[in-house]
Each structure stands twice: as C-alpha cells, then as structure tokens.
Design a protein around this nucleic acid. Structure first.
Length: 264
DNA sequence: CTGGGGACGGGGCCC
DNA sequence: AGGGCCCCGTCCCCA
C-alpha cells in the first residue's frame, strides 16, 4: 500500500502553492548558491545501489490492491471527557516559521487559538494525551503499546488530517508552513531536502547517473523511474493484459483508456 | 495514446 | 526527539 495513501489528501492540498503568499514567512532554512558540492556528491548512491539488477522488481505489483484499512482514531474509543483531538497550527517556532504568520488556514481557526502560545499549546497537548503526559494508565500504557488503533489521534488544524503521533503531525504541519525557502526564486518547501532538490533545478546539478546510459538526474526517484526504461519487465502490470509499465501513472492511463485485454 | 523526464510531496526509517 | 535520508508516489509537460 503506498504510503502516501496512509493519509487521505484533502481537496485543497496538492500542487503549486501560491508562493507569493508566503513572502512574509521567515525562512527556517535557505540554500545559498553555489550549492555545496561535497554534500551533493555524498548523496550519490554507490554503484550497487544504482545497479538495475538490484533494483529490478522481483515481483509485479498488484496495482489494484486498494488501501482498505484506515487507522481508527482514538476518539471513538474514549469517554467524552477526553478531548477528541489536539489541533495544532504551530508546534514550535521552527514549524511556524519562527513566529511569522503561517499561510491562512483553509478552515476557520478556533477563536481561542490566537492567544495561545505554541509552547503552551504543545504543553496542553502533552498533558492531555498518553505518552505525552498524564493519562490513565489503562489508556496510556497498555492500549497504546499493544493496540495501534487505540492511539490518540492528532489532527492538523489546517486540513484536518489525522495522525497517530505528534511527530508525524509536526512533520505534516511543515507542509503548511513551508519553512524552507529557496534564496534564488523564493519557492518554499516543507523540508530541507525538498529545497535541496529544487536548488538543483537552478544549479543544473545531476548527481544521480544511470549506469546504462549517459543520462543523469537531479532526483533519485527520477533515476529509479528511468532505470525501469532499461528493463523489459516493468514494475507495474495490467491485470487484464499483463502488459507492464514503468510507472503507476502509465498503468492508470492504460487502464483508463480501456485495456484491449490481450498481451502485447 | 504512450512513454518518459522533471519537479515535488510526504510517511517511515535510521542515526 | 528531531533531523536527514530513503522510498514511493503524483502531477505536469513534452516528444
């Protein structure tokens, strides 16, 4: 099951944020050019990693496997007096862009929120939930350890996505605050290595090279996808015609356009 | 329509 | 606990 499906995307989530709206967020992390060559080179995988024989799929994915199981939030399992979820807009100065205004949330914020400091919010969260502070042992110690479905849910106030750990939520919130800003073009990213990859689009650096041809890539994922093109048997297979594709998106297109049914 | 490259998002793992 | 990295994935665009 693709990990990206673990959390359902909201309608407003994807693609091309309006970076001009982010100008007043202070960057937590910026890259100055020229980019650190040594750091880039250090990221080049060893030959064995790039060896396509190693990366060739040993099994064709069942592309029709659908994610079925969604974690059940704690809320439904708990008595009323326990808060349903912690909603956090900013958990620290780091996540909030060092105190600057984050992008406007798509949903209305609780009115009490503006007067609540990040640290106190965090403290409240820690105090209210198992593993973070005081909570009945039967809830905190036992069920949390043994039953993942019984964990407390942490909700993002921006998009209401639900997370089972505070760390995951904090990481997610960065995708709203976008603290890493490109010093060249001003684009903002949630994580330093996303910015790092983006900076390569300015520098033209392509540290990931294909061992089979002369192509090089700035992004490891793109090299991985490219390596599929050197393989006769590709990773994603149509269940109807057994034809294989190098990318899930190609398989989806193939299926949406109506599989002819016969092997190619 | 298909195949591929470019750019990027995000959860999990490891240190 | 937090940051860096890996891996898997999507979307857009173009040939």
């Amino acid at each position: 099951m693709p990990r990206s499906f673990l959390v359902r995307k909201s309608a407003c989530s994807r693609r091309r944020p309006n970076y001009s709206e982010l100008h007043d967020s202070s960057p937590e992390f910026t890259f100055q050019q020229p980019y650190d060559q040594a750091h880039l080179l250090a990221a080049i995988p060893p030959p064995e990693v790039l060896n396509p024989t190693a990366s060739l799929p040993t099994l064709i994915w069942d592309s029709l496997l659908a994610p079925q199981a969604q974690p059940i939030g704690w809320a439904s399992l708990l008595p009323q007096e326990i808060p349903k979820a912690v909603e956090l807009t900013s958990l620290s100065d780091e996540d909030s862009g060092k105190g600057s205004q984050p992008p406007s949330p798509p949903s209305p914020a609780p009115s009490s929120f503006s007067s609540t400091s990040a640290s106190s919010l965090e403290a409240e969260g820690y105090a209210a939930f198992p593993g973070l502070g005081q909570l009945p042992k039967q809830l905190a110690g036992l069920s949390v350890a043994k039953d993942p479905q019984s964990r407390k849910a942490f909700n993002c106030k921006y998009c209401n996505k639900e997370y089972i750990s505070l760390g995951a939520l904090k990481m997610h919130i960065r995708s709203h605050t976008l603290p890493c800003v490109c010093s060249t073009c001003g684009k903002a990213f949630s994580r330093p290595w996303l910015l790092q990859g983006h900076v390569r689009t300015h520098t033209g650096e392509k540290p990931f090279s294909c061992p089979h041809c002369s192509r090089a890539f700035a992004d490891r994922s793109n090299l991985r996808a490219h390596l599929q093109t050197h393989s006769d048997v590709k990773k994603y297979q149509c269940k109807t015609c057994s034809r294989t594709f190098s990318r899930m998106s190609l398989l989806h297109k193939h299926q949406e356009s109506g599989c002819s049914g016969g092997p190619r």
